[in-house]
Amino acid sequence: MDGIADMGGTHGWGPVHPPQRDEPVFAEDWQRKAFALAILSGRAANGGINTDAFRHALERLDRAHYIDDGYFGRWLNAGELMLTERAVLAPGAVEARARNLRGEHVPEPPVTEPVRPHYAPTAEGSLRSLDAAPAFGVGQRVRARDVSVPGHTRLPGYVRGHTGVVEIIQPAHVLPDTNAHFLGENPQYVYSVWFDSYELWGAGAEPFTVTVDMYESYLEATA
């Protein structure tokens, strides 16, 4: 989907922040738990780990919940979104409990009956083996499809419609576009494709190359 998470090439973010020496893994105490809770929330919501569903929850957060709460905050928010969508939590349950924790007296919504997806991964993780040969070869020119899909995809906006060259054929992986929606694994080869900066950003760009790792169905052959 075309959401706030698809940031490649977008403007308006200001300067980068140079690395700090000895930065702690978790700058604030709550971030430890938010990180672990997000991972465990995925399992509680979906009955198993589905990283694609988690990323789709992340990219559907509004700007405040994605940006303002920071990285671990958005993880927590995505976990809550999945739990609420699966009726593991009632809408507003976390907010009500948080208010009560700070001394307010608000009613908490009744416990709901979860409606979990049918989810049966064929193996752990995302790597799968395929009998079919890869559709594209190393050195072949390919075009990233110029499509905008409402659901989850890992085809970033900034390469859509642009032409590149296959650098590496990576092993087959579960397709995020269907797996995120519990519509099947549909494993596909992944291709690391070189894009020239002038192709992506025009003649005034800095000279460099970007490689983007793309599932086979994101690509089409080109002359």
Partner: peptide, 10 residues
């Protein structure tokens, strides 16, 4: 310069 955008599980 080669930028590696980690858009898959690689």
């Amino acid at each position: 310069i080669i930028v590696r955008d980690s858009t898959s599980e690689v």
